[in-house]
Design a protein around this nucleic acid. Sequence first.
RNA 1: GCGGGCGUGGUGGAAUGGUAGACACACCAGACUUAAAAUCUGUUGGGCGUAUGCCCGUGGGGGUUCGAGUCCCCCCGCCCGCACCA
Length: 856
Amino acid sequence: MTPTSRYTPSEIEARWQSVWEKHEIFKAVRSADKPKYYVLEMFPYPSGRIHMGHVRNYTLGDVIARYKLAKGFNVLHPMGWDSFGLAAENAAMQKGIHPGEWTYQNIADMKAQMKPLGFSLDWSREIATCHPDYYQHQQAMFIDMIEAGLIYRKNAIVNWDPVDMTVLANEQVEQGRGWRSGALVERRELTQWFFKISDYSDELLSALDTLENWPAKVRLMQENWIGKSRGLQFAFSTVNAPDGHDRIEVYTTRPDTLLGASFVGISPDHPIAKLLERDNAEVAAFVAECRKGGTTEEAIETGEKLGMDTGIRVRHPFDTAQELPVYIANFILMDYGTGAIFGCPAHDQRDFEFATKYGLPIISTYLPSEDAADELSEAYVPQKTEKVFYNRGFAGEQWQTGLEAIDAAIAFCESQGVGQGVTKFRLRDWGLSRQRYWGCPIPVVHCDDCGVVPEKKENLPVKLPEDVTFDIPGNPLDRHTEWRTTPCPSCGKDALRETDTMDTFVDSSWYYARFTAPHADTPTVMEDAEYWMNVDQYIGGVEHAILHLLYARFFARAMQITGHLPQKAIEPFDALFTQGMVTHAIYKSVGADDRPIFHYPEEVDLKGDKAFLKESGAEVEVIPSAKMSKSKNNVVDPLSIISDFGADTARWFVLSDSPPERDVEWTASGAEAAYKHLNRVWNLCERISVMDQGRTGDGNDDLLKQMHKAIHDVTMAIESFGFNAAIAKLYGFTAAIHKSDASQAVQREAILTLAQLMSPMTPHLAEDIWAKLGGESLIATASWPVADEAMLIDDTVTLPIQVNGKRRGEIDVPADMPKDEVEKLALAHEAVVRILEGGTPKKVIVVPGRIVNVVV
RNA sequence: GCGGGCGUGGUGGAAUGGUAGACACACCAGACUUAAAAUCUGUUGGGCGUAUGCCCGUGGGGGUUCGAGUCCCCCCGCCCGCACCA
């Protein structure tokens, strides 16, 4: 049979997209009589080009959105642009274009590239964070948050990126380097704005337990990042210390090792160290050395413990005759705990190394057993949950776990007036000031008389000036006198605007809320937020597990406090899904100068698992599956895939080959296979559409059963994010229709159902089949098919028969046959009879509908 | 170092504790064709004197169970996150 027409995705995809657009199928309108469903994919930075990662991310979201729409939900599925950021300024410097012009052009380009993919997006809600329509509301909320005490200014030692010439938050420093520039981060003292996220440490931590539909991995990463610890804070009294320092406060999570203390260490940034530094050249030199090394990779790798005896001594709180030396040590951080520790070399490897180096005593407080040697060759550091023998314990039993001993030690110390139990967090306040142009201006004014004054709300937005240049390093706002000069909102005198802008993570911390009322003249509208929030399903890369997702959780709380979000939105993302990357093989050869040459996929021919250059025929090395990267030339451009095969093929393939949480390898053969399959479905539709309508055929019930099974299986698979499994079922169902000899009516019903089940993945092809075979209205608005339970039950089942757990045969029995009859049949099976040799089995296990196991 | 995850054919991957390898790729064979492409059909975990039979097989070793890829313990390997955090 020859098809009367060919599958031409370019034609049908454009056609259906315009139909959907015309009918505003995906426009979300609040409606009291329908349950809502909010699907959100992490919005993109407008680099100007979409990549396969975007295609995968938005396809996953689109499958959910279209499925939920078919299930009768009022679906909100918006898209926007995370469009402030450094790349625009870099482009401005390199190409002499204004960052805004560059950004808006990229947005237009990317949108044009996304449209052909046919996502069910409500473009009427599109937002761009760099637009004053968006950031004026961010400025308004900033002012509210200052008033609510959620934002403050302080002098702080900050991470300074010397390449990007800006401050970075702790979260943005990776291995001592800037997360974007890769430059070694320096320390600078600046006056900065901070969000009081640390006030919410405990809350952000405990609320993680409520996020049941988040990946455990992400919750754990946040838990570790927040870093809660319980310990004892107390003071050593000093001997011969400088005036005003008759005590040194320390914090420890192991107060049970207090009797093993052999020294006190203070940070090079500790006030005492700073005091000594002033009039002691030796100390000054040492401290300078520590600071220099502090953040370098080298220092972390070698990890050499450096210390310097200050000459100061402290008294042990439980044995005042015992005096401990006070060292300045390079491994003690000023911003954790109190910036001072006591060292217990017996039970801390780092302290052990330090004590060995400087000849300090090593005193154990607990041992693995009562008769264990008290001389240690390395620190003894068991798990806190392990029971150990306390030879120098001072609270509780001699045999107890570390945890018990710590609790007992805190209680004992508190009762003796030596310090108190304290809970500390690793999470620091979020520094949001950036010395950049292309960000949301911080809406405050610095007045000589009134100090720091928030801008009046009626003066918002504080718009970025357009007339700026990037020919000089640094922030152009600093040198824009006209823009900077403004009347003080409080006294009206000439004053200066703040020239720092906000960290772009602020922009992405509330965009999900803005989508619920994207054109409102307030940041949010309560009724809309009340209706649409929370995001029912959020989808994005795991790389945002800490930064973005923690900030957004904080921001939702801050917005709730300032009246911009309802209480219910305090955790804005009900369910989170983190998808894997799209990877591709790398084709590599070695050039004349021994340098690797990376070949583009289109430059090589694949023969089996080997690859040869098209030009020369030379074999090249195939490095399996790595993240798509421009430098490795293993990038596949979605646009070329769409023009070769169509959007449906691209969508089908990224879903089909791997579970969505795992990486998927893009292969040319896989993409072609997807295309071939869609062609088969198309041809099948052609066959049925020209078939004689009066045709009766055979196996009608059989095909209908397979159809209901497919409805059931595909629905279950979609519900559980098993899109690859759903597609496997769809392959099977397609083959069943293909082989079927059923009547035209039944085949038509089957393929219409197939089209519906495929429609979340390949919406254009599905729509076309629907139209061709006379489906009612549009498939995009059709209700999801429901499996008939009665059709799922088979009359007869094939039961495998095992003897001692090994399969020896099978029997076909009616599905409702009683257990004892099944047992009789099984025992009569020739393989069982042969093995039993006339004996009787010890036991027969019949699992109805599943298996029979005979134990001999 | 701490925390988490993963390990199944040539490949990507399926398997509510119940027939391991669904589905797809690749390979091989066949049909159609002058030929090729496309399309269609079929085979494909390993082994056994070739079978409607048997043995082995989910990183390795042990255990629980009538039955383990799946649950428990130990080990090995790979991946990810965090890390001078007191």
